[in-house]
């Protein structure tokens, strides 16, 4: 078991390394002189020279990469070209809204999607089942920003139940924090609800046919116990897998949602940095998101052994 964990952790190193090389090369893959690109349209020759110096473009690519990677490993992502501040500090300021958005989104998605999937499987073929699956199709196909504007218009502007935009840090109280996140998280959760409800339904349909479900009923277990204890426990591996894959989706979703709802998170920082061509920040954000994705999938892999006793590494 611990040997497996070690092996699994080691196996992420090439992935992380590959991402680092890719991220570092971004700037140099773009056509033209990197220094000129960074300096922008209105830059003077001196500006370009200064940037060239700062990037150490006179030295070879591998040397520069090792220097940069060394900094990254120590948590130093360099200096922003736009604000001249350390990138690490800029990112830390923006982490809380994004992490909050993701956690609340996932919580909303799980709480809604799992009962939906279970109910659809239990009443397969019924009107309820068809209504739930129609909802799931809509969740996939309606663009996030449309859902966002509709929800904001009704719940915030017309009914005034929730703030229209903006973020309240958790330090200022759980309730304001949660209120500021409900709209954006509900909007972002649509895709997840669809995804998780569908996989829950499909898996549960198969599991409800199993002999051990009949055994549970023959013991006198109540309907909800059969569904939520005997069946759902067996459906968790596919559900958890989809949740893990969905994190990648959630990252790109966060970029849109933070813009729509004016949340000062990493997604907004990404957009701002792309517009400002602030490459050090862009590199750092991509790297961090990739790393988070790798870690989450590692944790999910390891969680299988807790979920299903037949899985042993």
């Amino acid at each position: 078991m611990s040997a497996y964990i070690l092996r699994r952790i080691l196996s992420t190193i090439p992935v992380v390394l590959f991402v680092m090389i890719f991220v570092f090369s971004l700037l140099y893959l773009a056509p033209g002189d990197p220094a000129a690109i960074l300096a922008g349209d209105q830059a003077t020759q001196e500006d370009i020279e200064a940037i060239r110096n700062q990037l150490g473009l006179d030295r070879s690519f591998p040397v520069r990469f090792v220097e940069w990677a060394g900094g990254v490993l120590r948590g130093d992502f360099g200096t922003s070209i736009f604000t001249r501040e350390p990138v690490t500090g800029m990112i830390l300021q923006r982490v809380e809204p994004t992490v909050s958005l993701m956690v609340v989104t996932l919580a909303i998605a799980l709480v809604i999607a799992i009962p939906m999937g279970v109910a659809a499987a239990w009443k397969r073929g019924s009107l309820l089942d068809r209504a739930i699956m129609l909802f799931a199709v809509l969740g996939f196909s309606v663009p996030v920003f449309v859902v966002g504007y509709v929800l904001a218009w009704t719940l915030a502007l017309k009914l005034g139940w929730l703030p229209v935009q903006g973020y309240q840090p958790i330090a200022e109280g759980i309730l304001p924090w949660l209120r500021s996140l409900i709209l954006p998280a509900a909007t972002l959760s649509g895709v997840y609800i669809a995804l998780i409800a569908r996989i829950t339904r499909a898996t549960m349909l198969e599991i409800l046919q199993q002999d051990y479900i009949r055994t549970a009923r023959a013991k006198g277990a109540a309907g909800h116990t059969v569904l939520y204890v005997h069946a759902l426990r067996n459906a968790l591996v596919p559900i958890v897998t989809v949740v893990g894959l969905g994190v990648a989706l959630m990252i790109s979703g966060a970029v849109v949602i933070e813009t729509v709802f004016a949340l000062p998170g990493l997604g907004r920082l990404t957009v701002e940095s792309i517009l400002r061509r602030d490459y050090p920040v862009i590199q750092a954000i991509i790297l961090i998101f990739s790393f988070v994705y790798v870690i989450i999938n590692l944790l999910i892999d390891l969680s299988y052994t807790l979920i299903d006793p037949r899985i042993r590494y």
Partner: peptide, 28 residues
């Protein structure tokens, strides 16, 4: 009623099935 049947199943009437390999829940 279904609740009466639940009280009966497993308490007053027990059942054994043909398929021992698949009749037990793998995660408990």
């Amino acid at each position: 009623s279904e609740s009466r049947m639940r009280k009966l199943r497993g308490a007053e009437i027990g059942m054994i099935f043909q398929e021992p390999m698949t009749s037990l829940n793998p995660v408990f």
